[in-house]
Amino acid sequence: MFGILVIGILFVLRVNGDFLAQERTRGATLKPISACCDIPELGDPEPLRECSNPKLSGPCNDVQCVFEKSGFLTDKQSLNKEAYRAHLRKWLEGHKEWSDAIEKAIKDCVDRDLRQYLDYPCRAYDVFTCTGIAMLKKCPKDAWKC
């Protein structure tokens, strides 16, 4: 009799536990808003491939590698503004719905020198992060997932 009671209690706890877990997954979340906008890949395939084998660790090294191989830096800490601006505008030719986002990225991230304030300076990271934020702010409705 005691065994049946224990099994019954465990069953009730299991069912209620599942119900409570389901309730927590519905409704509002605090996931990063960046997860809500499906931003297409901005990089060209060749530099992305070259900088992926092996993938470089740290918040800067892989982005730095892609920026260097793409010609977006004149040296380790100086953005080649003309090259990056031209790349974004060329990318836009295949992604017309992103025109407001690209113009915001050029205005905020290429025409101005912003810092994202990592513990160490990384111009590629600063520009790339700024670009992502600008594109998120102007995410087209068709790319919005949340």
Score class of each variant (00 low, 15 high):
140 P>W: 03
33 I>T: 09
109 C>K: 03
40 P>D: 00
143 A>K: 14
129 T>Q: 10
81 K>R: 14
47 P>E: 06
19 F>C: 00
142 D>S: 15
50 E>K: 10
11 F>S: 13
17 G>N: 09
73 L>E: 12
142 D>K: 07
68 E>M: 05
101 A>P: 11
119 D>I: 10
29 T>K: 08
87 H>D: 09
110 V>T: 12
18 D>R: 09
21 A>D: 10
142 D>P: 06
59 P>D: 02
52 S>Y: 04
33 I>F: 00
18 D>Y: 09
70 S>A: 13
81 K>G: 15
125 Y>N: 12
49 R>N: 08
19 F>Q: 05
81 K>A: 15
86 A>P: 00
59 P>F: 00
32 P>E: 04
61 N>R: 13
4 I>Y: 13
122 C>W: 03
57 S>L: 14
2 F>I: 12
61 N>H: 07
146 C>R: 04
41 E>Q: 12
79 L>E: 05
107 K>W: 01
138 K>V: 00
72 F>S: 01
118 L>F: 08
118 L>Y: 11
60 C>R: 02
75 D>Y: 08
55 K>Q: 09
65 C>F: 11
126 D>Q: 07
99 S>G: 00
105 A>R: 02
137 K>M: 11
16 N>L: 13
140 P>C: 04
13 L>H: 01
71 G>E: 09
38 D>V: 07
138 K>W: 00
18 D>V: 09
81 K>Y: 05
63 V>P: 01
53 N>C: 01
40 P>L: 02
52 S>L: 09
73 L>Y: 08
96 K>F: 01
9 I>K: 03
18 D>A: 10
85 R>L: 09
115 R>P: 02
8 G>T: 11
68 E>R: 04
2 F>D: 06
66 V>I: 15
115 R>T: 13
65 C>K: 02
108 D>G: 03
82 E>R: 00
86 A>W: 00
60 C>A: 11
106 I>K: 03
15 V>F: 11
95 H>W: 05
55 K>W: 01
49 R>T: 13
85 R>F: 10
121 P>R: 08
45 P>R: 00
132 G>M: 06
25 T>V: 12
